[in-house]
Amino acid sequence: MLTEAEIKTFIDGAIHYFAVSARQPVAVGSPYLITDGTPTVHEYTGVIAISGRRNGAVCFTAPRSMLMVLLMRMNETDTSETNMKDLIGEVANTISGNARRDFGKEFVISVPTVMETEGGKFRPPVTARPFIIPLNWRSHSAKLIVCLE
């Protein structure tokens, strides 16, 4: 289970990512716990496996339309499928890596795995219930899924 301070670490990471990379603020909705079933995800999901002192995963899931605009905001002219997958993994990687400022070096993060997950569900790799942090940027919705034991 995550503490309030731990959830705030990930919220701060998402806010910082959009402020710096997109140069536009992201609005964060109220985080909630999935108590039954598995979280629904958008078209692309970047997954970072967590090991060390904690076990689980940190995922960033977003629709294609959001990734397209985000790439353009980063002055990236190549908006290919390959680069969208690269971006979703990089966002998940950056927010997870930044969390080590609070969690420390024993919060070991994997390289990103990217899933195409349109209309799908994300099955967490651990039994801990996932926390959802809703993110709204411009007219797009995305989610940060944090599932840690």
Partner: peptide
């Protein structure tokens, strides 16, 4: 140039 933000790294 890394996302790993802890001082130890």
């Amino acid at each position: 140039v890394s996302a790993l933000a802890d001082k130890a790294t």
